[in-house]
Nucleic acid binder design. Structure first.
Lengths: 226, 226
DNA sequence: GTCTATATGCAGATAGAC
DNA sequence: GTCTATCTGCATATAGAC
């Protein structure tokens, strides 16, 4: 088994990055900016200043490095969501922090979406990656829908179909990441703010309850309180 | 100049596809399902049963074929939008038909979004393609925002920031296409219906005005008329 | 662990026959 | 217009020295 395998590798000591980690970081950047086929192992090795042959010491093949890189990125994203969940009791706070998180980490999240897109539309197929991607989106929707359900149960939010609304928000976030890649001068932070405001409006949570959104009701005309 | 160039090629006779057209169609399919680097000219030539050398009779290079393919796809999409616009006077009808159009043509539109994503995140760069992609998104947003403005002016819609709302819908559509690529079993038609219903709700247009959306108010809980 | 050197194969592209 | 044959270069991957 290759040293880069998520299952087989000994737990990293957390104090310093291993070479395999360095390679996966460099690979993530390159795979995200371009795509699997056009990134060469020479590019990846040179990005951290080592010889191409070294990659084959840590990984079985280019595909194996790709698999490990995607797994690594998704696992990190899932860890991040877990931390987020444990940090909040209040559904409004959790949802607001989820939006804030997506704004602050928009760059790595965009990379993650890009690499998942490339993976999906390639003939490369790893059950472990399929499973992690599903987990990622399930967790994202779950954070949102659980919070929405709790807010509705507490009477803070207006009634709504929590699952569908969560999927809507999650899908829109994908759209924001895609638009940020395709469209020149797309304003990602404004788009996230618009999505957040729309959700609160839909759930009947006023802006005054939530200082972070104050004065950013973009989708509604100014001066009309409808 | 290559025969495949949009500017230089003589107008096609519209009655039968030229070889160049056949090649671009095959290339669109392949580039959309995979990506530029992993699709070989052998794949493209074999897809229509000709020899690889023939590609270089019609196009200067693989990149030139890619450019022509993207240009061709975007021009077709723009033509489609133009037809859509000319077909409707009523803003509600136009917006509804825009949604219907996106549902009916979801497959080619998904391919277009995929190929634009690949183009954007490749180091290949053609001013003509940049310009067409910008035109495409401008036209999409313009169809929506113009209709919204007219509806508001007529008093049919509630007041809203037409440009931002149009961008929101357009961005969400990108998200739907991305989600359809990444997520297994994503329900594209339900997602389009949800987006449409949300827009009408936001603009205060009741479902009864519009037979096509009746009974599909997914984002709101059943039984609650809020 | 990290390197040099190299084998192998294939993709993009051209020349030229028909 | 379409093909056969071939050149060229590069990318993945391996063997083996240090």
């Amino acid at each position: 088994m290759a040293a880069g395998s998520l299952q087989g590798r000994k737990q990293q000591t957390n104090e310093h990055f291993t070479r395999a980690d360095e390679l996966m970081w460099a690979a993530l950047d390159l795979f995200a900016e371009r795509d699997f086929a056009s990134v060469t192992i020479k590019d990846i090795a040179h990005a951290i200043g080592v010889n191409t042959a070294l990659i084959y010491y840590y990984f079985e093949s280019k595909e194996d490095l790709f698999r490990a890189t995607v797994e690594n990125a998704v696992v990190r994203a899932l860890d991040n969501y877990k931390t987020l969940r444990e940090k909040h009791d209040d559904p409004v706070d959790l949802i607001n922090d989820w939006f804030y998180n997506n704004l602050q980490l928009s760059d790595p999240i965009r990379k993650l979406v890009k690499i998942m897109l490339d993976y999906s539309s390639s003939r490369i197929n790893f059950p472990s990656v399929d499973c992690l991607i599903k987990q990622f989106y399930d967790e994202e929707c779950s954070i949102l829908s659980d919070s929405i359900r709790r807010g509705i149960a507490a009477g803070t939010f207006k009634p709504a179909d929590a699952d569908r609304l969560a999927l809507f928000v999650s899908t829109h976030l994908d759209g924001i990441m895609a638009a940020a890649m395709i469209r020149p001068q797309f304003d990602l932070s404004a788009a996230i703010a618009d999505l957040r405001d729309l959700l609160w409006q839909h759930l009947g949570v006023s802006e005054s309850t939530n200082p972070r959104t104050a004065g950013s009701d973009h989708l509604r005309s100014p001066g009309t309180g409808i």
